[in-house]
Nucleic acid binder design. Structure first.
Length: 276
DNA sequence: CATATGTCCTGAGAGC
DNA sequence: TGCTCTCAGGACATAT
């Protein structure tokens, strides 16, 4: 998402508006009139990421923060369905001219996501430690172990704890544990050195590949990139949403589905040995 | 304190 | 066909 909207860097915010929504209009913070006063006329200087949020940084150091959660999309192209448009941000081209996006949209079917305007101080409080752990794309092996090894929780559950490690989502947790050959229910405090090492490697591999493939568009088709194109990483999934299919690694056992912390986990019972 | 569960919202697909 | 039920790339408040 962050990379997809990079073409807006250098443009100026011309307008911010909530779009008419199905039932409950999206709530923004601060109130839309204050939001607009602080954003309109400001130049976009950067697009950053904090865990799973996208930050559009303005020349005042305020940032428009998109938190898409399950079904939110950040788009610079026409949306998949106008019904669930929530926020429109009008953009003015820079002096250089050329083809630049004229609007940035926040689209969200389920409406669990949110959009906020945060000052630099608020960003530090919301996204710095201890609210978010080290980022999953840059965390070192030592940091990974240090942040997780004390916990007695199952490793799959701990991987989703954004305070321990920022940026891993449900489907990717299953994928990386399969690559690392670790059972998802194994307590963190019982992982061995070799397992931490494999997990650290798998973490980077899975996320980088998923990014290269523009994410995973699951069977409901919701996820799209910033240009409203489907991702391709769903075709690379080895276990997620593949219950009862043969494991692509051992080709003998069938993928199993269990529920941990109310969320689906997929794994191979042969490649990922059960904890004793 | 650490860990577990309920909650927000809508639509797709399974099962009857 | 049409109904009900379950589940979904998530995060957080509240309960245990």
């Amino acid at each position: 998402m962050r990379r997809g909207i990079l073409p807006i860097v250098g443009l100026t915010v011309a307008d911010v508006a909530r779009v008419a929504c199905p039932r409950k209009p999206i709530e923004v913070a601060p109130r839309i009139d204050v939001f607009r006063r602080r954003a309109v006329g400001r130049r976009i200087v950067d697009v950053r990421r904090a865990g799973k949020r996208v930050l559009v940084v303005l020349d005042t150091d305020d940032a428009i923060v998109f938190e898409p959660r399950m079904t939110g999309l950040v788009l610079i192209a026409d949306p998949p369905d106008a019904t669930y448009l929530r926020i429109r941000i009008g953009l003015e081209p820079d002096a250089g001219g050329g083809e630049t996006p004229r609007e940035l949209w926040f689209w969200d079917r389920r409406g669990l996501g949110n959009v906020r305007l945060l000052s630099a101080t608020e960003q530090a409080a919301a996204f710095g430690p201890p609210r978010l752990g080290p980022d999953a794309l840059s965390i070192t092996l030592d940091e990974l172990r240090a942040h997780l090894c004390q916990s007695r929780r199952p490793i799959k559950v701990a991987l989703l704890d954004q305070r321990a490690l920022a940026g891993v989502g449900n489907l990717y947790a299953s994928e990386m544990l399969h690559r690392a050959a670790i059972h998802p229910a194994r307590p963190c405090d019982r992982l061995r050195a070799g397992q931490w090492s494999r997990l650290h490697a798998a973490l980077g591999e899975v996320l980088r590949e998923a990014i290269a493939h523009e994410g995973s568009t699951l069977s409901d088709g919701t996820y799209r990139n910033a240009l409203n194109q489907a991702g391709g990483y769903q075709n690379c999934h080895r276990v997620y949403d593949r219950e009862n299919e043969p494991c692509p690694a051992c080709r003998t056992a069938r993928i199993r589905r269990i529920v941990q912390a109310q969320r689906a986990t997929f794994f191979c019972p042969k490649c990922q040995r059960a904890p004793r």
